[in-house]
């Protein structure tokens, strides 16, 4: 497999109350095409910032981020992102939000509607197509945000804690669905979560970040066959290992 994304010694500072706050401290890893990468780390360590740099919404201060060998200049149609706070368009209803990316790509209306409806079914929002974001619960909004990005079928999907607002039951179902979509479409997924179990369940490799300023603690390979058994010894051991690594 070839590297689609290369992150080389990335450093990022923020200005915070006049002081410079180091958030990412020399992060390096490669992402292969078609790979499912999990990124875990304590909250506030810089996961979202790293994802935003890959999305092209933020620029690193040092180091390089190469997409197919070229530096990232800004957002592009080859990447779509699911935001941690959903960022649904309040003036568009559920179907309108999901159609957004398809409109941008000039997909014919009929085809776009069919596609959008397929994803609405996938995330379990049938019957809510005409509802506006303010009429939905947090979990439902999150599923709209997920469908809105998935429907674009970009080469790289960037997801920032996309299932965090769901109840445990729905979350497990959605995790399996995401793994299924990923294995069917062969897209590259970069999945940020603070839930280690989630990363171990889904990812090929897990980027383990330390607390701020984030350093790369480990790039853990998950060798288990899918679908993975959350209660197998291997699963529990890896989960514990990553947990301890972050704690130390």
């Amino acid at each position: 497999m070839s590297e689609i994304l290369q992150i080389k010694d990335v450093r990022k500072w923020f200005n915070s109350e006049g002081k410079k706050l180091l958030v990412l401290d020399g992060i390096s890893f490669d992402v292969r095409a078609g790979e499912f990468i999990g990124i875990v780390g304590p909250s506030g360590c810089g996961k979202t910032t790293l994802l935003r740099i890959i999305a092209g919404l933020e620029k690193q201060d040092e180091g390089e981020v190469l997409l197919r060998g070229k530096p990232i200049k800004g957002p592009g149609q080859d990447r779509a992102m699911v935001f941690q706070d959903y960022a649904l368009f309040p003036w568009r209803n559920v179907i309108g939000n999901i159609l957004f990316g398809l409109e941008i790509r000039n997909i014919p209306k009929k085809e776009a509607l069919e596609k959008a409806n397929r994803f609405i079914k996938l995330v379990g929002l049938e019957g809510f197509e005409r509802s506006y974001p303010h009429e939905l619960s947090g979990g439902m909004r999150q599923r709209v945000a997920l469908a809105r990005a998935l429907v674009c079928e970009p080469e790289i999907l960037l997801m920032d804690e996309p299932l965090s607002a769901l109840d445990a039951q729905t979350r497990n179902v959605m995790q399996s669905e995401l793994v299924r979509i990923w294995s069917e479409t062969k897209k590259t997924i970069i999945y940020v979560t603070h839930n280690i179990e989630e990363a171990v369940y889904m990812a090929d490799r897990i980027v383990v970040l330390s607390k701020r300023p984030a350093k790369l603690l480990d790039l853990a390979e998950v060798k288990m066959e899918r679908p993975r058994d959350r209660f197998s010894k291997e699963f529990i051991d890896l989960r514990a290992k990553i947990f301890r690594l972050i704690q130390s």
Partner: peptide, 20 residues
């Protein structure tokens, strides 16, 4: 965040951001 969301969904041209 709405502008950013639109950009990451592929709307990178100013005219489209204005309109949509």
């Amino acid at each position: 965040k709405y502008v950013e969301a639109a950009m990451t969904l592929g709307a990178t041209k100013t005219a489209i951001l204005l309109k949509k």
